[in-house]
Amino acid sequence: MDDWLEIGTIVAPQGLKGEVRVASESDFPERFEQPGKRWLLPPNSVQVQEVELLNGRYIPGKKIYVVQLAGIDHIDRAEELRGYKILVKKSDRPQLEEDEYHVADLVNLEVYHQLTGENLGIVTDILSAGNDLLEVTLHQQPEREEKPEPDLSKVSRKSKLRKLKPKQRKPATLLIPFVKEIVPIVDLKTGRIEIKPPPGLLEMNEK
């Protein structure tokens, strides 16, 4: 699968004539609006299937596209595609402007504090909230206060399993605005990002 780039997931049929709704994972509208070859990846499979995208349109505010695929002309056929991934070849990448990056290239880059040289963590996701945000999982996880063991004698048998089921703690992360002033250096060749956070940003975003 190293040769493929996932651009979206089919989440539901749209109407009765075989159109499908696609949750986009791409910043390029032409991936869903421009006719041409795409590839489908069924759930729990590594076997891709070629398909022709006939047309598509964007649903404002939802990061959802409605697309028509060749050979899918009824809601029942569209329903069968629920959960399928839509792929393109990694070699088929739109041309980027200066200081633009593909999301897949940013994930797993190491993040360094430009002033101190400290390796803070690794980019694990890109979030959209007005400006894009880098989600950085910290290498140095903060110590957390251990809670005392509960008194089992005060918990009913009926609710023991539900109440005492251990919760998995998510690793602490930082959210870094992906703007030039805060992220002045992105070096894809060395797998390195340098940030210059304003005072209080690291402490405010740590969670």
Rank of each mutant, 00 (worst) to 15 (best):
residue 1 M to Y: 07
residue 2 D to N: 15
residue 4 W to E: 03
residue 4 W to Q: 02
residue 5 L to M: 09
residue 8 G to R: 03
residue 9 T to P: 05
residue 11 V to W: 01
residue 12 A to M: 06
residue 12 A to W: 08
residue 12 A to R: 10
residue 13 P to W: 10
residue 14 Q to K: 10
residue 15 G to K: 07
residue 18 G to T: 04
residue 18 G to Q: 02
residue 19 E to K: 12
residue 19 E to C: 04
residue 20 V to I: 14
residue 20 V to Y: 03
residue 21 R to Y: 10
residue 22 V to I: 12
residue 23 A to P: 03
residue 25 E to R: 15
residue 26 S to D: 08
residue 29 P to M: 08
residue 32 F to G: 02
residue 36 G to T: 02
residue 37 K to D: 10
residue 39 W to T: 05
residue 42 P to M: 09
residue 44 N to T: 04
residue 45 S to P: 13
residue 46 V to A: 09
residue 46 V to G: 02
residue 52 E to I: 09
residue 54 L to H: 01
residue 55 N to A: 11
residue 55 N to P: 01
residue 55 N to K: 15
residue 59 I to C: 01
residue 60 P to G: 05
residue 60 P to N: 04
residue 60 P to I: 03
residue 62 K to T: 15
residue 67 V to R: 01
residue 71 G to A: 04
residue 71 G to Y: 04
residue 71 G to S: 03
residue 72 I to K: 07
residue 74 H to T: 14
residue 74 H to R: 13
residue 75 I to L: 13
residue 77 R to A: 15
residue 78 A to P: 03
residue 78 A to K: 05
residue 79 E to W: 08
residue 84 Y to S: 13
residue 85 K to I: 02
residue 86 I to C: 05
residue 86 I to Q: 06
residue 89 K to R: 12
residue 90 K to W: 01
residue 91 S to L: 06
residue 91 S to G: 09
residue 91 S to V: 11
residue 95 Q to L: 07
residue 100 E to V: 04
residue 101 Y to R: 10
residue 101 Y to Q: 09
residue 102 H to M: 14
residue 102 H to W: 14
residue 103 V to H: 13
residue 104 A to S: 14
residue 108 N to F: 12
residue 108 N to Q: 13
residue 108 N to A: 12
residue 109 L to H: 06
residue 109 L to Y: 04
residue 113 H to F: 10
residue 115 L to G: 00
residue 116 T to V: 03
residue 117 G to S: 06
residue 118 E to G: 10
residue 119 N to Q: 13
residue 121 G to V: 03
residue 123 V to N: 06
residue 128 S to H: 12
residue 130 G to R: 07
residue 131 N to V: 14
residue 132 D to T: 02
residue 132 D to K: 11
residue 133 L to F: 15
residue 136 V to E: 06
residue 137 T to A: 12
residue 138 L to F: 05
residue 139 H to P: 00
residue 142 P to K: 13
residue 147 K to T: 08
residue 148 P to Y: 07
residue 148 P to V: 12
residue 152 L to R: 10
residue 152 L to H: 06
residue 152 L to A: 03
residue 153 S to Y: 13
residue 153 S to M: 08
residue 154 K to N: 14
residue 160 K to T: 05
residue 161 L to S: 07
residue 163 K to H: 11
residue 164 L to S: 00
residue 166 P to Q: 11
residue 167 K to T: 11
residue 167 K to H: 07
residue 170 K to P: 00
residue 172 A to D: 14
residue 173 T to N: 07
residue 174 L to Y: 07
residue 175 L to R: 15
residue 177 P to K: 04
residue 179 V to M: 09
residue 179 V to N: 02
residue 180 K to F: 09
residue 181 E to M: 01
residue 183 V to Q: 04
residue 185 I to P: 01
residue 186 V to D: 04
residue 187 D to I: 09
residue 187 D to V: 08
residue 187 D to L: 01
residue 187 D to A: 05
residue 189 K to T: 12
residue 192 R to P: 01
residue 193 I to E: 04
residue 195 I to F: 00
residue 195 I to D: 02
residue 196 K to P: 01
residue 196 K to L: 15
residue 197 P to E: 06
residue 197 P to I: 12
residue 200 G to N: 14
residue 200 G to H: 11
residue 201 L to E: 04
residue 202 L to F: 05
residue 202 L to C: 01
residue 203 E to G: 00
residue 203 E to M: 02
residue 203 E to S: 09
residue 204 M to I: 04
residue 205 N to S: 15
residue 206 E to A: 10
residue 207 K to W: 02
